[in-house]
């Protein structure tokens, strides 16, 4: 199997919030992020974005009265 590009990996990491990835996509992504530090960081950063927007929804954005 040809190694996935970072461009495709980032797209799939975003799409997994929108749809269920199929087995082939999940495996290719797993192989890629195991070897690519930039993309494994990217995946963690998307989780941070998720947590940040959850904070915004709850009005929990620092500086409590």
């Amino acid at each position: 199997m040809k190694m996935m590009t970072c461009k495709d990996a980032t797209r799939l990491m975003s799409e997994r919030y929108e749809r269920t990835l199929d087995l082939r996509e999940r495996l290719a992504l797993k192989m890629h992020t195991a070897m690519c530090k930039g993309c494994s960081n990217y995946g963690r950063h998307l989780d941070v974005l998720r947590k940040a927007t959850a904070r915004l929804r709850e009005g929990n954005t620092g500086g409590e009265p």
Binding site: C6, G38, C39, H45, A52
Partner: peptide
Amino acid sequence: RGHWNPDDRPSTWSDPEASF
């Protein structure tokens, strides 16, 4: 070739929860 430019490659973020 579809890989990160060196300058744009995501780095490690320290303690994002503290930033919040």
